[in-house]
């Protein structure tokens, strides 16, 4: 029987990579789904794999799980190729959710832990804890097919973590959940991190990544667009922005030399700035020409960086002026 090595990572060793991808390429027919991707997730961190739909996130995660084989490049877990016995240390929530419909929730969770070779009593106790936490404990004896989509989603999440793996991969873990459940899940991921787990998850919802990720890898069309710690990415790709609420004609703002883009709404406007002291200059220039009710400096959000870096594809972005970083 394969034993399950538990918690043998040295969390202080920040040089060590739990998941390490080097120049990974995967093509489906002529389409390169993943094109030269390299990143590494460190022990005990939450790593965000971010990108729009079809960016290659799921393909990347499937290759990490050895469900798909890369055409070239290397994928290492703890410095070696994934072996069958490593699967016990990994929890994987696939994008394609699926459970055996005819099985009872409790039996399903026990089965998922069993095929990971986890201790029966311990994993069952952990599963119960999670069921209570997600407020679906009373459904334990019911069949999967009776659950709502959101409930099944939670059961699937519990099945991913109940065997207490030290590496967890979640592919779009928030999709299909209501806002309350999304918050529950965000808290759960933070708690897993605190327990020393290495968490990698993919999302296209920037808010989630911004709230819990330490480092991110932003990809589009299978290629890296930006990567690094959240602070690094913001410093490098973010720009200052201001939100102004005003009365009067503000059309002149877009043509100011230190303004890179504007987004006008009926009663207010967002202004993206470039260069030193741009905010101060904007404030001074506006003061004489508009009746300002509010002037607020905005921190660059991952959302805006995302839109800026990959938004060229979207129709909305196409209407805006080209942005220069």
């Amino acid at each position: 029987m394969e034993g399950r090595p538990a918690g043998h990572f040295v969390i202080a060793d920040k040089e060590h990579s739990v998941i390490d991808l080097q120049n990974v390429v995967k093509a489906f027919d002529s389409v390169k789904a993943v094109d030269g991707v390299s990143f590494a997730a460190k022990p005990g961190e939450i790593f965000g794999l971010i990108g729009p739909n079809g960016a290659g996130k799921t393909t990347t995660i499937r290759m990490i799980m050895n469900i798909l084989a890369p055409d070239s490049g290397s994928i290492m877990l703890d410095g070696k190729m994934l072996t069958e016995s490593d699967k016990a240390r990994i929890g994987y929530l696939p994008e394609e959710r699926g459970l055996y419909k005819k099985m009872k929730v409790g039996d399903m969770l026990a089965f998922l832990a069993e095929i990971k070779g986890a201790d029966k009593a311990k994993s069952s106790a952990r599963a119960d804890e999670w069921l209570k936490r997600f407020d679906i404990y009373e459904w334990k004896g019911r069949k999967i097919e009776e659950l709502s989509k959101g409930m099944a989603q939670k059961v699937q999440f519990i099945g991913t973590v109940a065997h207490d793996p030290d590496i967890m991969l979640f592919d779009e873990p928030f999709s299909g959940l209501d806002p309350v459940s999304q918050d529950l899940l965000l808290d759960a991921l933070l708690e897993l991190k605190r327990a020393g787990k290495t968490v990698l998850f993919s999302t296209h919802i920037m808010d989630h990544a911004e709230r819990i990720c330490e480092r991110i890898f932003l990809m589009n069309h299978g290629k890296e667009v930006a990567s690094g710690s959240l602070a690094e990415v913001k410093a490098r790709f973010g720009s200052d922005a201001a939100r102004i609420e005003y009365d009067g004609d503000a059309s002149f703002v877009a043509s100011l030399p230190y303004v890179s883009a504007t987004r006008e709404f009926p009663r207010w406007m967002e202004v993206e700035l470039k260069g030193e002291d741009a905010a101060d200059r904007l404030y001074r220039d506006l003061a004489g020409r508009l009746r300002m009710r509010r002037f607020e400096l905005l921190e660059p959000s991952l959302h805006s960086i995302f839109i800026r870096l990959v938004g060229g594809d979207t129709a909305e972005a196409g209407q805006r002026e080209a942005l220069h970083v």
Binding site: I67, K87, I90, P94, G98, L99, Y100, L112, I115, K116
Partner: peptide
């Protein structure tokens, strides 16, 4: 069709 195959293959061969 149940889409359980991925989760199964993440645990066993």
């Amino acid at each position: 069709t149940n889409k359980t195959v991925e989760i199964m293959l993440s645990s066993l061969s």
